[in-house]
């Protein structure tokens, strides 16, 4: 199987609560879901966002939703103070999901 960008197989949306972000990854086609399950490990996703998570962020979590062929990644600490205190341009982290779609699977 050749490597493709995640964006070809899946779509994504990012939500925020406090300084935690959640990023959904949803396969366009149900048959690609197993490929996402295998490729998008917690370690891969944490590595992709390593610079933004920093050294002291808690562990990334992954939840599986087979009925909608989706994965939900929860990234505590990535918003560095959350929307109310953060100095970031995108304090909500709304654009994070789009960055994940550049990962190779």
């Amino acid at each position: 199987m050749s490597t493709v960008k995640l964006r070809e197989l899946a779509h994504s949306r990012t939500g925020d609560k406090g300084d935690t972000s959640n990023i959904s990854v949803i396969a366009f086609k149900p048959e690609d879901y197993p490929r996402l399950l295998e490729a998008l490990t917690v370690e891969r996703v944490a590595e992709h966002f390593a610079e933004l998570l920093g050294d002291d962020a808690p562990r990334v979590l992954r939840y599986e939703l087979p009925k909608v062929h989706g994965l939900n990644f929860v990234l505590p600490g990535i918003l560095k103070g959350g929307v109310t205190r953060s100095l970031a341009l995108d304090a909500h982290g709304k654009a994070l999901g789009a960055a994940l779609l550049d990962i190779d699977v």
Binding site: S12, R13, N22, I26, Y63, L65, K67, N72
Partner: peptide, 29 residues
Amino acid sequence: ATCTEQMMYEVHDPAAYLTPDVTADFSGV
């Protein structure tokens, strides 16, 4: 696709979405 994106929006554990009324479980939706 649009419904699935919104279902997972701002959700952490899909099996335990806490509200004042119920601990909702979206894992089988």
